[in-house]
Each structure stands twice: as structure tokens, then as C-alpha cells.
Nucleic acid binder design. Structure first.
Lengths: 204, 204
DNA sequence: TCTTTTGAACTGACTGGTCAGTACAAAAGA
DNA sequence: TCTTTTGTACTGACCAGTCAGTTCAAAAGA
């Protein structure tokens, strides 16, 4: 049985592992380090997870789960108060930024692993990625269907591009320009999404 | 003296290292593996590079150097035949895609390491990144100066976002939708850049 | 022309250290 | 009582970096 106590231990291990692996990478991070940072014994890691690999896979699932829920909630909230689908996309951009601001280490680690081939957790990764991208694709598709967006856009590619735009802008923001506010970053990305980059300076 | 022979050996080591590290990560890749794939002995690696770390740093410089040149050439070529700055940006997007298509492993590895903190090659990485992004920022700034782009855009943030958009879309293209042509991907990204996403389907 | 020397480039066995995973008895919850 | 955690000790595989020795093409010498 999974008791509350055990859950708490796992949570501590996730938190310890995520920062260490984000900083150093999976292979360079030792189980001993993770245990120490979490304040538990090494044996406890193996009591809770079958292996270092399994700990990492479950960490991935845990993290992407949080992101997916956050993206879905953002879109639903806009829909509930009658906003457009483009508003929903905009809300998802903000939700994505907020997620990255809150869990920078997880994002870092996720990006570092996402496109690696020949890794043990390849399948897990593909699965959770699809889950998250699907939420964005859904909103894009709805926007195309009701004419808010051009029916000539390529939904999967555009979803990827949006995802990437937010991801990289946010990571760069954290790493190289952390003094900017989330609103700065959000409005720069909104502008890009809504086509207010192109054209002369008469627009607002 | 650095002879032609030595250069050839180094090139072989770069090529071997780039794919292995892209697939497995830096720490999980052994020097022995790199040597074997390059068809040389382990000692040769240490004859040519002071350490595994140094091999990797020089590999990074080598790779980003290629990208920077390619981005600069793309913009110059458009300028030479009198195109607009937005055309130049578009050409850079294509050049970026072409680079990623040609050196997917390098791109993978670069992305995986870019936002890691506490790494030995942190400084090298920041340096080469700045070199590459500066080329895009330059074109953006020129476009703002001559009124092609709104003066309200945030140049560094937009450059990051563009960079990320191309990066992630291209990696996703390679990894999950490799049947699409480079033109498909290019036109999807162009559309995003030029604001033809938003708005109804009347536009072309 | 033929022989000898030189030195850069390369080789691969070896060393010292690291680390994932195991074992287990005793303690601490619940 | 039953589950979970602790802490220490251990094993066996793996690996970065070293170093004494080899290769060979080209220069020097005869």
C-alpha cells in the first residue's frame, strides 16, 4: 500500500532529483547525491523505486502531468468566460511561461532529454510529450474550425513551433535576462503569435 | 605544428563524438566509444585533446561556428540582391532549418546542454550562443530601424523566441514528422513570423 | 641511391577511483 | 504488528586518464 508517508518521501526524492539532474545531467548525478539532498538514506531510494532509471521515468511523468493539467485549465478557464480560441492560446502561452518560471529545473531537464534517441525512457518521453502537445493542438484545431485562424496552417507543426517558442524564450529569459517580468515575455510572444511583429510602427 | 593528418584525426573524432553524445549525453559517452567509432585508439584522443571536456568544448565551438557563418551568409545574400530585412529573417529561418537538417546530432546536443548550469563548459557555451543570436538580433534591429518591423518589439526576446521556434519545430520535424519536406516546415514558420496565422482564411 | 635518424602521431594495457545496486540488522513510525 | 526508513558495508562493473613503447614518413647524411 502507498501510504502518505511514502508519498512524502517520493516527493522529496523528486525534488532532489530534478534539480540535480537539471544541473548535471542524468548520468552525472549519483543516487547517493539524490538521497543526500532529499535527506534520506540510499536504501530508501531503492525501497521506493526499482532503479535510478525508474525514479527518473516517474519523475518525468509526474512533471509533464502537472504541465498538461495547467495548460488544459488555462484553456478551459477562457472558454468558461466566453473568450475566443485565440484568447485561449494566449492563456496557454502564459500558463506555459508560469509553469517554466515555477519549475525551471524540470523544464531544463525535459528539454535536455526530449530529442535524445536510444534512451531507456524514450517511450515514456514520447508519451508524455504527446499528451502535452495534444492540448495545444486541440485549441488550434478548434480555432481553425471556427475561422479564427487560417485553415492553411499546419496544426501539428504550428503547435510544435508555439511550444518551442515559449520553451526557448522562457529558458533564455530565466538564464540570460532574469530581470524581465513575466508580462514582458508574455507580451513579446503574444505579439509574435498575433502577427503584430510584421508591419510598420503605426500599430499598437 | 598541426599537420593535415592531425586535422583529419580531429575531424573524425568530432564526427564520432557528436553522434554518440547526442544519443547518450556527455557523461554516458565514454572516451573509448568515441575512439572506437572514429577508428583510432583511446590514446589518440588524449594526444589530440587534453581531456574529454576539452574535446567537447572544441566540438561546441566548431559546430556553432558553422551555424553562425551560415546565418550570416543567408542574410548577406539577401541584402546583396536588394531584399528587405524581413526577407533576410526569412532566409535565416531557412538557413537554420537547413543547418539542423544537415547536423541534427549537433543541434540535439547543443539544446541538451544550453541551459544546464554548473557545467565546466558553461562559459564556452554562453559565448558561442551569443555569437549566433547576435546575427539574428542584428537583422531584427535593422528591420526595426528602417520601419519594416514595429519598434515596439523587444529585440533580444524576439530573437530568442525566433531561435527557439526554429529549433524546436525543426527538432520535432526530424524526430516525429520526418516525412515533411523542408519547404513545409519553412512555410509554416514563415506564416507564423509574418502574422498570417491570425485572421480568417481569406488570406494567402 | 641507399641508410640512418628524428619526431610527430598513434597505440593499448594498466591504474586508481567511482558508482549502481545489494544485503541486512536494527530503529522508527503508524 | 506491519510497513517504512536507516546506515553501514560490500561487490563487481565500468571508466578517465597515463605512459612506455611502436609506427612511419620525411629529413639528414654518406
Amino acid at each position: 500500500m502507498t501510504t502518505a508517508r511514502r508519498q512524502a518521501t517520493r516527493q522529496k526524492l523528486y525534488e532532489a532529483a530534478v534539480t540535480l539532474i537539471a544541473e548535471q545531467g542524468f548520468s552525472a548525478t549519483t543516487v547517493e547525491e539524490i538521497a543526500e539532498r532529499a535527506g534520506v538514506a540510499k536504501g530508501t531510494v531503492y525501497y521506493n523505486f526499482a532503479s535510478k532509471n525508474e525514479l527518473f521515468e516517474q519523475l518525468l511523468q509526474h512533471g509533464v502531468g502537472l504541465l498538461t493539467v495547467s495548460l488544459r485549465d488555462a484553456a478551459d478557464e477562457v472558454a468558461a468566460r466566453g473568450g475566443t480560441r485565440v484568447d485561449a492560446l494566449d492563456a496557454q502561452i502564459r500558463a506555459g511561461l508560469a509553469f517554466i518560471a515555477r519549475y525551471p529545473s524540470f523544464t531544463q531537464l525535459y528539454v535536455a532529454e526530449l530529442w535524445r534517441t536510444n534512451r531507456a525512457w524514450q517511450d515514456t518521453l514520447m508519451l508524455v510529450r504527446q499528451e502535452a502537445v495534444a492540448v495545444v493542438e486541440k485549441v488550434l484545431r478548434e480555432a481553425v474550425d471556427n475561422g479564427e485562424l487560417s485553415d492553411e496552417i499546419d496544426v501539428p507543426l504550428t503547435a510544435s513551433a508555439l511550444f518551442g517558442m515559449v520553451l526557448v524564450a522562457a529558458l533564455d529569459w530565466q538564464a540570460f535576462q532574469s530581470h524581465r517580468s513575466i508580462d514582458d515575455v508574455h507580451s513579446a510572444l503574444s505579439r509574435l503569435l498575433q502577427g503584430r511583429v510584421s508591419g510598420d510602427s503605426r500599430r499598437t
